[in-house]
Amino acid sequence: MRILVAEDHRVLARTIATGLRRQAMAVDIAGTGDAAERMCLLTAYDVLILDRDLPVMTGDEVCRRLRELQDPPRILMLTAAGELTDRIYGLTALGADDYLAKPFDFAELVARVRALSRRAPKPPPTVLRFGSISLEEARHEVSVDGRPLELTPKEFAVLHLLLVAGGAPVSHDELIRTVWDEYLDRRTSAVRATVSRLRVKLGDPGLIAADKEEGYRLCD
C-alpha cells in the first residue's frame, strides 16, 4: 500500500510515516500543499493523509484539485479543525473520503487508512492462493500446506505482492515502490534480505525464483 503524508509539522510527519512503515506500508512525505499535489500527479497513491493547514497551497485547495482527477487517491483529512461544522465541510464541500481530528489515536489512524484502501471498484479477494501457499489479507495470516507462518510486516507485504502477481515476475523497483518507499536506496540489500528470510520461512527456497533482469516470482 502506498501512502502520502502531507503535513508541514516535520516531527509529526516523520512519526506518522515511521508508524505506517511498521505496518508494512510504503510512505512518502510532502511538507507543502503544492508538493503534495505534484507528488499525487506523479505517483498513484492509495491514500493521502492531508493536513488542511499547509503552506504554499492549503490542504483544502489540494483536495479540491485532486477531486478533479479521473482516479484520485483516497483522502483522509488529518487536522486540528475538529468541530462538527469543520468535519461536515471537509466531507461534503471539499470531498474528502474521511476526516480525523488532532490529537488522534494512532491505532485509529491505521484502521481508517486500511479501510480507505479497501474502497475500490473491484476489491481483490480476501484469500490469495498459489500452490501450497495461502494468504488471508484481513487477518494477516499465511500458511503453507496448512502450516501457519509467522511473518514480519515486510515479509507479508512482499509475499502479498508476489501472490497478486500470480507467478508473473515482480521487479526489484516495484517491490521497493510498493513495500518500502522513495527514500530507500535502490542499491540496498533490503529486498534481497527480506526475500531470503521469506524463502526460509516458506520451507522451500525454490518457491521464490530470482532473475537478475525480471525480479522475483512464485514457482509451482
Rank of each mutant, 00 (worst) to 15 (best):
D60Y: 01
V110D: 05
L109A: 03
L78W: 06
K102R: 15
T58C: 03
V110Y: 08
L76D: 07
E150V: 15
L116Y: 13
V62G: 00
L66S: 02
Y99E: 05
L135A: 12
L76Q: 08
V113F: 01
S143W: 00
P103Y: 05
T79A: 11
P103H: 07
L128N: 11
A81W: 14
E150W: 06
V142E: 08
P72H: 00
I88M: 05
F104L: 06
R64I: 05
R64K: 14
L94P: 14
H140P: 01
M57R: 15
T79V: 10
H140T: 06
L151W: 00
I133K: 08
P124K: 10
V127F: 05
L76C: 03
T58E: 03
P148G: 08
V142A: 14
E68C: 02
D71I: 04
R129L: 01
A93V: 11
L100W: 12
E83I: 03
E108I: 12
G59P: 13
A81Y: 15
G131M: 05
K122F: 09
M57W: 03
F104V: 11
A80F: 10
M57F: 01
R65L: 00
P124C: 05
A138R: 14
E83H: 12
Y99P: 04
D145W: 08
D97H: 15
F104M: 06
A101D: 10
D105I: 15
L76N: 06
A96G: 01
Q70G: 14
L78N: 14
H140I: 04
R64M: 05
A96R: 02
E83K: 14
R87Y: 04
L151S: 02
P103C: 06
I133P: 09
E141Y: 03
P73F: 03
A107L: 06
L94V: 13
A138L: 12
A115T: 13
F130K: 01
R114V: 02
D145F: 09
R87P: 07
F106T: 06
S143D: 05
L100S: 08
C63W: 03
D98M: 00
R114A: 00
D71Y: 02
P121F: 11
R139Y: 09
A120H: 11
T126F: 07
G146T: 13
L135I: 08
D98E: 10
P124L: 15
K122S: 12
R67Y: 02
L109N: 04
S134Q: 15
D98C: 00
A111M: 14
E68L: 15
C63H: 02
I88E: 04
T85A: 11
K102I: 09
T92Q: 15
L84E: 12
R112M: 09
L78D: 08
A80Y: 08
A80K: 13
T85W: 03
V113G: 09
R87S: 11
V144M: 13
E141F: 03
P148W: 05
A80P: 07
Q70T: 12
A107C: 00
G82M: 09
A101P: 07
Y99R: 06
P124H: 07
A80E: 10
